[in-house]
Each structure stands twice: as C-alpha cells, then as structure tokens.
Amino acid sequence: MKRDTTLLIYLPLLVLLLAAGPLLPKWAGFLVNVSLCFGTVVLGMLILMRTGLVSFGQGLYYCLGAYAAGTLDHFFKLSDVPLMILCGTLLSGLVAFGLGFLLARYRDIFFAMLSMAFSMILNGLLVKTSELGSTDGFNVSVHSFAGIALAEQSVRYVTYSTTVTLTVLVGVGVHLYLRSHLGRMAEAVRDNELRLEYMGTSVKRLIHINYVLAAALAGMGGAMMAVTVGHIDPEMAYWTTSGEFVFIAILSGTGSTLAPFLGSTVFETVRSFAYEYSPNTWQMTLGITMLLVILFLPGGLWSMFNRQSGTA
C-alpha cells in the first residue's frame, strides 16, 4: 500500500501552526486564520468539484454559518466559540439537506446558477432585515470557550487555535472521506453518472450527501470567520463572495485536501499585499494571477507538488 503522505503533513502542520500562533505578528496570525476559514469553505467546494459540480452560490452557506454564529452572540448572548461554530455548521448543513433534494437534480452551469440564485435571495433578505443590521450587518463578539469565560487578551489566540485545530480535523476527515468508498463514488459521479446508475447506485443521493458536506464546511468556515473577524454582513452571500470561493478552488486545484489551504493562503496573501501597496489594482493583480494559473498551471497550485513528488 502507498504511504499516505498527506496525513503525515497534517499533524506537523497542526503543531507548527499552534506553536506559531503566539509568536506571529498580529497581521500574520490574522492572515493565517482568515486563510484557514476560506480554506475550509473551499475544502467543501473541493468535495463538490470531485463530484463534478461547481457552486456559484457557496456564499449562501458561508453567510448562513456566519449569521448563525452572530445571532447566538447578538440575540442570545451565547458567545461561546465552539457553540457558535457548531451551530453555524449545523444550520448550513440542515438548510443544504433541504435544498439538496432540489439541487441534486442539477448539473453544470444550471447547478451553478441555481445555487447562485439562492445565495442572492439570502443576500436580498438580509439587506432588507433591519433587525440584522441590513447592509451593514453587525459585530460579533466572543466571551467564552466551552463555557469557560475568556479574558479579553486571550480571545484572539483562542479563536486562532480553535480555527487551526478544527481546520486540521476537517482536513483529515475529508481526506479520509475522499479515500473511502463513498469518496471514490463521488469521483465516479463526475466521470460517468450513467454507469453509476447502471451499477444500482443513486447518483442523486451521492450528490445530495456531498452537497450537504460541502455546505456544512462552508457554514463552519463562515462561523469561524465571524468569530475571527468579529463582523458579518450580507456581502457574505453576494455573488462576488461565491465567485472568490470558486476562484480559490480553481487556484488551488483539487489534487489534495491540503490544496484549498495552500490556495486560500496564497489568495489572502496576494490580496492583502496588493491591497496594502496598490489599493486601486488589487483586483487586477488577482485577475492576472488567476489567468497565469489557468494558462500555465491548469491543475492549480497543487499540481506543482504533484509534478515534483509524483504522488496522487
């Protein structure tokens, strides 16, 4: 059996990131943290893409997760980090379970467009809901971790290490999932649905499962983002946000569950620096980066590693 190098990377990564947390300058810790949140959303998209589907509306679940977390704090004063993230994940997964019955019937551009329509509906709803701050959204604060009250100065590291730990956990989880029978079936869906149906398998059910998983991860990413950044707004469900996720996903490549995290880190870094040094051309920088990747690295950033080490 081939050695599983990916799993061997995750553990040192976890230790490294946790240890680096207190040492990193504030901006760098924040950058890592935000990248991991994005990476988690994109990890969900990777599952969908392995199934052959690209959602242009993943912002729906990202935003739902964030608002679930935010609402807990804002209205119920349940400002507990793991609870907020858990609720964000569950709410998104639950909504996806419902919508999944519908979306599992769609493919290609129609899947992309219908998901986009749903996320735009959420965006429109939030913008018109003054209780939730309309266009401005609202601030989210964090006060405890699993019931233990947090001191003001420890909040940052606690959310950081929670994000790091959860991210690594889901990374490993998704990695194992993709290597399981169910995960292989996802790829079979992408390759040939007809054949799978002729093997007695319900393609719709497979898509539904992967859709829910992807949404739960997006919700988790959104909730983690809410506690990390401390502010949420309806823009999270706007099409440009979903566009960014697709962007990162293509930038990353689908070769490994580590790819989304690499991709999102590169994306966030490019964006932060471009924004810092040339605020009027940061989008241009991102666009050109993307074009270069599509033209010269069609398998995404991850394919650089594949080429070198020859592992799949």
């Binding site: 690209v54 241009m284 993307m290």
Partner: peptide, 23 residues
C-alpha cells in the same frame, strides 16, 4: 477548457477591467 474554467477566465477579466476602469 471546462465551462467552469472559462467562467473563471472571464471572471479574471472582470477583475482586471474593474481596476482598469478606475485607473
């Protein structure tokens, strides 16, 4: 290329043009 990749290509063009217009 894949339809989705083509969407991404034009999305990149969109990003570039947005800034080009500002410039």
């Amino acid at each position: 290329k894949d339809e989705v990749v083509l969407v991404l290509v034009t999305y990149s063009v969109f990003l570039i043009l947005e800034d080009l217009i500002k410039l």
